[in-house]
Computed example of a mutant assay.
Amino acid sequence: MAKRAKPAAKRGRAASKGVSVAAGELLTLLDFVRYAVSRFREAKLTFAHGTTDPVAEAAFLVCETLHLHPDQFETFATARVTAAEAKQILDVVARRVTTRKPAAYLVNKIYMRGLPFYVDERVIVPRSFIGELLDSHFSGSDEAGGSLIDDPGSVHNVLDLCTGSGCLAILAAHAFPQASVDAVDISADALDVAARNVADHGLEDRVSLHRGDLFRPLGDRRYDLIISNPPYVDAQGMADLPRECRAEPKLAFDGGPDGIDIVRRILDQAGAHLTPQGGLLCEIGRCRGALETAYPQTDFLWLDTEESDGEVFWIGAGGL
């Protein structure tokens, strides 16, 4: 008489409502992405940290767990994973569901414009539209009729206010190869993360970090370009923040009752820190109405990206 087959060994266990996965049920990268998407949708997670949907987030987590760049997913989509790798993937999927922390915190990484940056709970997870705009409107190419400068090499001094993880300062250093970049944040913890990223990208000689309140640590320095992704969430938005966003530093979100308290201060002081041909590029999310009401005589140029409409403005020194 044939012996009864032993139960298949468990390949991993997800912590979402006791769901378990047995050996052989999930084999390829695509299998694990599909599984993760189902768990994410079941848990009604929020996606607002560099990925905007469960499929993109699942692919990101699978690739990071397997030490693959996101661009390599399609190449290895049908490749099988090992039992040890499967366990790691299922673990990070389970932690995403049970903790509701942003995926970037779970793997300590985020990508902007294809470049990797270290992140942890000391900084907001970067997802600014300014990185795309540096490519589309400041590259010197006028193919789309939208370039705001003629020559990136003519930009010699850049300031990044509210730098957080330092990602925009680093992207600016890449966009303007002749420029020195000053990056300011009021948070010492954030600057520790920024210092790590600056070192990782080998830019210690071009990106300088300053702790302080906006322009205060800079003296009378002037810049060809000021960029900023400041706190701009209004009071109602702060009250409605999803659980994922509540894992991030409140300081990086809170823009006061109407969301533009910090933006007002930047606008009021930026003119004294710009060269005559310089300008300010500032992200304000959905506060366009509040800003235009507060500054009815100011001629803002609103810039769109692939995923945003009128959430970033440009204003030249003359307009300030």
Rank of each mutant, 00 (worst) to 15 (best):
D205T: 05
A56R: 12
D220F: 14
V119G: 00
H69P: 06
G12Y: 04
E64I: 08
F32W: 11
L61P: 02
V119W: 00
G202A: 06
A56T: 01
C63Y: 12
S20N: 12
D220T: 15
D120T: 00
A2D: 07
P242T: 00
P152N: 01
G18I: 01
A8Y: 09
A84W: 14
D160N: 08
H273G: 11
V158L: 03
G319N: 12
S141P: 08
L251V: 01
A169Q: 03
W302Q: 08
E57W: 10
T75W: 05
R13C: 10
L133P: 06
G316S: 13
S139F: 10
S16Q: 04
K101G: 01
V81T: 07
M112F: 12
V312G: 10
G310I: 06
A188L: 10
H210S: 08
C167P: 05
G146Q: 15
R11Q: 15
V93L: 14
E292Q: 12
L171R: 02
W302M: 11
A317T: 09
A294C: 14
G285E: 00
Y232L: 04
L241W: 02
D189P: 02
E57P: 12
V81W: 13
V93I: 15
L27E: 09
Q178E: 14
L214D: 06
P217W: 08
D205A: 14
L159I: 03
A79C: 15
L66E: 03
P276H: 09
D31Y: 09
G289T: 14
S228G: 11
A86Q: 06
D135W: 06
R196N: 02
H201Y: 05
D261Y: 07
V198A: 01
V33P: 10
A22M: 14
E57D: 05
I130Q: 01
W314V: 07
G289H: 11
D299E: 13
S128G: 05
G279Y: 00
A169C: 07
I284C: 05
V312T: 05
E121Q: 04
D224A: 14
L291T: 13
A86V: 05
R80V: 09
D71P: 05
Y232T: 01
D31C: 14
V97P: 15
R127L: 07
R80T: 10
D299K: 11
S147K: 02
L209D: 05
E85V: 05
A175G: 11
A169E: 03
T52W: 12
Q178F: 10
S16Y: 06
P70C: 09
T275I: 13
G114C: 07
E85I: 02
A194K: 01
D224N: 14
A43T: 15
R221M: 13
A15R: 01
G131K: 02
T275H: 13
Y295F: 15
V155Q: 03
I262E: 02
L209F: 08
R246M: 07
Q236S: 04
A144F: 15
